[in-house]
């Protein structure tokens, strides 16, 4: 347990440092790389906390975002910088992949074996609790809804907020004329 905690704090410090560098650095490309490093740290933290699905999602989203951002940065700035030595890049990639795979192995060992029944078993499980208390506690026949809107309603509120904020962002970016532009048009 303490080993996991120490690892988590190390990762947190790493992510905070990466974010600080991303904010402070003058070079856009370095900032993007630092954001990617912070995302990688988050994926590792997810793995340490036994959430491999979240970790994989985080990795995929991070890859796509970083690739797109680097593409944008490179075209915008016409970036010319000295390429780092190949051995260094290779070592960094191997180190990151090794860390990720090690954390994967650590997590997958802690999970239940593949095909093990989640609902049965002597010890009380989360799923068993949901099934046992879903109908009497919420009155909803559909367990998915009772979990989504009752047991984990806070989670759903967060999702709804995410959609709301993204729509506000889309409107702000895509609206036809800005306030100032509108005034000058008239």
């Amino acid at each position: 347990m303490t080993a996991i905690l120490i690892g988590l704090f190390a990762l947190l410090i790493f992510m905070i440092v990466a974010c600080l560098i991303a904010i402070e650095t003058r070079d856009l490309l370095s900032a993007v790389v630092c954001v990617g490093a912070a995302g990688f740290g988050l994926a590792l933290a997810d793995l340490l906390l036994s959430a491999p699905d979240l970790a994989l999602t985080q990795m995929v989203v991070e890859f796509i975002c970083v690739v797109v951002l680097i593409r944008v940065v490179v075209t915008r700035q016409d970036h010319t910088h000295e390429t780092p030595k190949d051995t260094f890049a290779l070592a960094a990639v191997v180190l990151c992949l090794g860390l990720f795979l090690a954390a994967c192995g650590f997590t997958f060992a802690a999970l239940r074996p593949f095909g093990a029944p989640l609902f049965a078993g002597p010890e009380p499980t989360m799923a068993g609790q949901y099934v046992a208390h879903g109908l009497p506690d919420t009155g909803a026949v559909n367990y998915v809804t009772s979990i989504l809107l009752d047991f984990r309603g806070y989670d759903t509120l967060g999702e709804a907020t995410v959609i709301f904020v993204s729509i506000i962002g889309a409107y702000a970016v895509l609206r036809s004329v800005g306030r100032i532009g509108h005034a000058s048009h008239k």
Binding site: G139, A140, V141, S146, D150, G153
Partner: peptide, 21 residues
């Protein structure tokens, strides 16, 4: 409490069941 299902639960399988859901 936050997100507490405060309405009456009603009969299962009827439209008015599940409180605030």
């Amino acid at each position: 409490g936050f997100f507490l299902n405060f309405l009456p639960k009603g009969q299962p399988f009827q439209l008015w069941s599940g409180g605030i859901i």
